[in-house]
Design a protein around this nucleic acid. Sequence first.
DNA 1: CCAAGATTGAGAATCATTATCATTACCAGT
DNA 2: ACTGGTAATGATAATGATTCTCAATCTTGG
Lengths: 166, 166
Amino acid sequence: MRTVGASQPEETARAEEPGRPAEHGRAGGAAGVKTARGTRARGTRQAQALAVALDDLPGFCSAQEIHAALRSKGETVGLATVYRHLQALTEAGSIDTIRDVSGETLYRQCGTSVHHHHLTCRNCGRSVEVEGRAVEQWAEKVAAEAGFTDVGHTFELFGVCPQCAG
Amino acid sequence: MRTVGASQPEETARAEEPGRPAEHGRAGGAAGVKTARGTRARGTRQAQALAVALDDLPGFCSAQEIHAALRSKGETVGLATVYRHLQALTEAGSIDTIRDVSGETLYRQCGTSVHHHHLTCRNCGRSVEVEGRAVEQWAEKVAAEAGFTDVGHTFELFGVCPQCAG
DNA sequence: CCAAGATTGAGAATCATTATCATTACCAGT
DNA sequence: ACTGGTAATGATAATGATTCTCAATCTTGG
């Protein structure tokens, strides 16, 4: 498993507070930015918590890590819900996803919505966004030459960042 | 599941000799190109069959597909063995691997041992090897600028090939 | 022919991600 | 406030690819 900068107390107390009634469903006072159908971006307590968590995490991290981070902060969010929101956010273009070497999907909040790629530290997950106009163009050219259509690409850079190297 | 261009006759007519006792272990007369330890490239019946299968398949395909192809040809090779050889061959550099969109690993026999990338048809799996000197250099430059070291990259192009498009 | 070591393969074990589905919270009417 | 409708949640089961386990089997050297 990769390790991320954020602390991940492994012995997270599994037993919830005894008296606490099982919380469920949407949060109490959340404003609720309702989108058309199915996915409201951050109306619920869980969505809000996830957004905050993504803000805090420095680089790319897996859904499981995010879930663990939420847990360790005291938030109670189901793993399934984490995946759901992550997926929705990805589709909405609010966050970036990459695949690490083992095939795990890593997520990260992303500023720009324009297409770009990442140079990610394989140790701490921190990443730099790189704008790859050159690569895009090259890819299109190559594809066109081969007669391929409807071309997409995946491109990721992994390395060790200055901090982790030093 | 993806579909591969090559036909995969499900009920291949080739019923081997009826009396065939359950074969196990290494093949009878195989020459046996023994490598240092653990992995002999193609000494066994299973390894041989796998090599042939890889030769036949036109493009990238998953371990499971290769396993299925072997099955349908009448070869009896365990899935675990397929994975084992695929992994060994990959480490040896004899075959290429890429990750498709769903995270599955796809394998393909590869001619050159020099570093290159692929433009793969997401419909039939056929692929073209593209030499990406430009990309390599660009990647290195970007990485260096960001101060990252020990940089590697993944780069894949997916599209629809002329045949599948027409 | 025998012992030692390599290889195989069926099935169990992992592990990330999805699907289920009963429960719950929010919203708009009434 | 009460209520019905609907979206969201989360515990858990299911999926699916890949790896691990280990007894059975094969090959080879002597």
